[in-house]
């Protein structure tokens, strides 16, 4: 293992993050506060409780997931797309690096950034609502796995993207709708039966449900299924990345 290389990539990527620390820090705080004002205060005054949890607290896991997923994807996709755009990938390809090391560096950094933002949002949320975490270990595990798996996905998007528009395309057209329709702001039991069934095809449902279970002990789908879903998604992303490097798709002619 070329640990020095992994750390070189990781440190360089984190450096970019810290260079814009204020932005990285302030924007999630502001957007979380906005969500609390709109959803928590405005809608929360109509919906008192969801399955025994105050609506303000109920949306926290979904809010964290929303930001963490978006951040993990955008950081990872940009992280690898930028060198591609600049033409500096020659350096990665000509260095004594395996695909695993490149992925560990870039995905590790993107996941760390997303994790950082997730923690900031949780801290902000705890200022608005009384948060209790029933299963802290599971909560951390879900959070970390989500950061990693969606950073992997972002990495794939970054390799696939041929321009900046495409870089935004998948997050805007697929990811954001999946998150919003994945029960971030509601319990899927609130939906009509037919939509409940359709919703089960949305992988994000399993993530948010599992994450919410870690907080309140209540879930839309069994916790085991959530775990299987996220593990399966991570494995799928890893397999795709392994294939990409094996074939040199879009990076090595």
């Amino acid at each position: 293992m070329n640990w020095a290389a992994i750390s070189a990539i990781y440190v360089t990527e984190m450096h970019r993050f810290f260079r814009t620390l204020a932005q990285s820090f302030i924007s999630p705080v502001i957007s979380t506060s906005l969500y609390f004002v709109v959803f928590g205060a405005a809608i929360g005054s109509r919906i008192q409780e969801v399955e025994g949890v105050s609506y303000g607290a109920f949306i926290v896991p979904g809010l964290v997931m929303l930001s963490v997923i978006t951040q993990a994807i955008s950081n990872a996709s940009f992280g690898i797309y930028f060198p591609k755009f600049l033409g500096t990938t020659y350096e990665l390809l000509s260095a004594p690096l395996s695909f695993l090391e490149i992925v560990l560096g870039y995905v590790g950094a993107a996941a760390t950034k997303a994790l950082f933002i997730g923690v900031v949002i949780l801290a902000t949320a705890s200022l608005f609502v009384d948060l209790q975490i029933q299963h802290p270990v599971a909560m951390v595990a879900f959070l970390v796995l989500t950061c990693v798996s969606f950073a992997l996905m972002g990495f794939i998007i970054g390799i696939w993207a041929g321009n900046f528009e495409q870089l935004q395309l998948v997050p805007l057209l697929i990811i954001t709708p999946l998150i919003f329709l994945g029960g971030s702001f509601y319990s899927i039991s609130m939906l009509p039966p037919i939509w409940q069934t359709i919703t089960l095809f949305n992988p994000v449902v399993y993530l948010i449900s599992g994450f919410r279970w870690a907080f309140f002990g209540l879930a839309d789908v069994p916790i085991g299924m959530s775990l299987v879903a996220i593990a399966g998604f991570t494995a799928l992303c890893l397999a795709a990345i392994w294939w990409i490097f094996r074939s040199g798709w879009r990076i090595r002619s």
């Binding site: 640990w3 020095a4 990539i9 600049l86 033409g87 020659y90 350096e91 000509s94």
Partner: peptide
């Protein structure tokens, strides 16, 4: 390897980009 095109990350300092290259080679 010194490539034909001049491709450098525009915002990175000279010394940092050189250190990065050394790191990549372990």
């Amino acid at each position: 390897l010194v490539p034909q095109e001049i491709n450098l990350e525009p915002f990175t300092k000279v010394i940092d980009t050189v250190r990065f290259s050394r790191g990549l080679f372990g």
